[in-house]
Computed example of a mutant assay.
Amino acid sequence: MARLLFKLAQVPDDEAQEIRTILDEHQIHYYETDAGFFRVGLDAIWLADGTQEERARELIREYQAERAVRQQQNYAQLVEAGQVPSVWQHFCAQPIRFIAVALGIMFVAGLTLIPFVMLLRNA
């Protein structure tokens, strides 16, 4: 029976390709599905045979742990080099968008808090 191994929704292409490569190197047989034209399906990697599931999951866990360390080191290097933009730099780059997002957040927060404020007024 087929087993869902790894969902590919919002996974970077390089990560998905590396997982495919790992599975191929360890001779784990898999197949992929996509969500289709209307995006009602599931982008995923499936195992045709459930007997290899534990091995495949362990390989993916090891890979993701290594990838997390690599990405954290990469981010730290970008921060040290000053290539990670600050809030002020984001504002300067796109001030109208920044203000619109901030106003949107305040609007949603206000709508969310109205029932609680009304309860406090009536208490």
Rank of each mutant, 00 (worst) to 15 (best):
A9M: 05
Q64C: 08
R39E: 07
Q52G: 12
H29Q: 15
I105Q: 02
Q73V: 03
R61H: 10
D43Y: 08
A48Q: 08
Q89R: 14
Y30I: 07
Q72K: 11
I99D: 02
E58D: 11
E18W: 00
D34Y: 09
A68M: 08
R55V: 10
G41D: 05
A48E: 15
I105L: 13
Q27S: 13
A35K: 12
L59G: 05
A109M: 13
Q89S: 12
A68V: 03
V11T: 07
P115D: 07
E66F: 07
I45F: 01
E62I: 13
L47P: 00
L47W: 01
H26T: 08
L23I: 07
Y31V: 08
E62L: 14
V69W: 05
D14F: 06
A44L: 03
R3C: 10
Y75H: 07
E66A: 15
P95H: 01
D34N: 15
Q52E: 11
E80Q: 13
A102K: 07
F91P: 00
Q27N: 15
V40C: 08
A81D: 12
E25V: 07
A9K: 15
N74G: 10
Y75N: 04
L113R: 03
R20C: 09
S86M: 09
A16N: 03
Y63H: 15
Q10R: 09
F6D: 00
Q73I: 07
N74Q: 15
A123V: 11
A81S: 09
E66Q: 14
D24T: 13
A81G: 02
Q10N: 06
M118C: 06
L8Y: 01
I19C: 03
F107W: 13
L4W: 08
V87A: 10
M118L: 15
Q64I: 04
P115G: 06
D34R: 13
L5T: 06
P12S: 06
P95R: 05
E62K: 14
A93Q: 11
Y75P: 00
M106A: 14
E58M: 12
G36F: 12
I114S: 02
Q83Y: 03
A56E: 05
F37T: 05
V101C: 05
P12D: 06
R3I: 15
I99H: 04
D49S: 06
V87I: 12
T112N: 04
V69Y: 08
V11G: 00
E15T: 14
Q94H: 10
Q83W: 11
L8D: 00
E66G: 11
D49M: 04
M106F: 10
G110W: 13
Q73K: 14
L5N: 02
Q72L: 12
R20I: 10
I60M: 10
A2Q: 10
L5S: 04
